[in-house]
Write a protein that binds this DNA or RNA. Sequence first.
DNA 1: CATGGGATTGACT
DNA 2: GTCAATCCCATGC
Length: 203
Amino acid sequence: MALAAPAPALKRRFYARDVVEVAQDLIGCVVAHEGVSGVIVETEAYHDCEPACHAFVGLTARTATLFGPPGRAYVYRSYGIHALLNAVCELEGIGAAVLIRALEPVDGVETMRARRGHDRLEDLCSGPGKLTQALGVELADNGADLETGPLVIRPRPRAWREVAIACGPRIGITKAVELPWRFSAAGSRFVSRRSGVAAVPGR
DNA sequence: CATGGGATTGACT
DNA sequence: GTCAATCCCATGC
């Protein structure tokens, strides 16, 4: 019996709803790019109604992807050095996205090690700039369709179906710091930071 | 056209 | 704990 084919990628309608819900539902899902993949263990939600979101300034060249159709990648350069990967959410015309902040490596670990220049498994994808480097995601992937690939996000594997989710304040921002819109797989060794989280009530 | 500010990381004290 | 690297883009003159 051959290995099962990978699950089909998440469809546009998965992303076309409340960005804070999508941020939680993406925990445990799998990001894959050209044979390299990992399980999402940390996310943050951003919405144009709050000032920490790039889309807060309105429609510009930079934010066009955020206001575009859901299910696309929003990739931008941070601090002049790192490419950060988001999944665009909500309906077209609303600027919202989920920042993918950390992965638990699954496939292509040796490729990740070579690209990252680090050996420890926990150092490969435990941060938003680290995981794009490990996956080979670049600015040119901005606007790419996450349903058709080559960069795709797949549903939770069976073992991740019941993952416990923690929440806390978003990291590295100076505005709207009070919103608890950072989510992580409870107890994961692969998140970017360990502190500042609490259990999500009722989930 | 000049300026300033980051959704970070890694090296160093 | 501190701090520099580095570049895209929004803003203002």
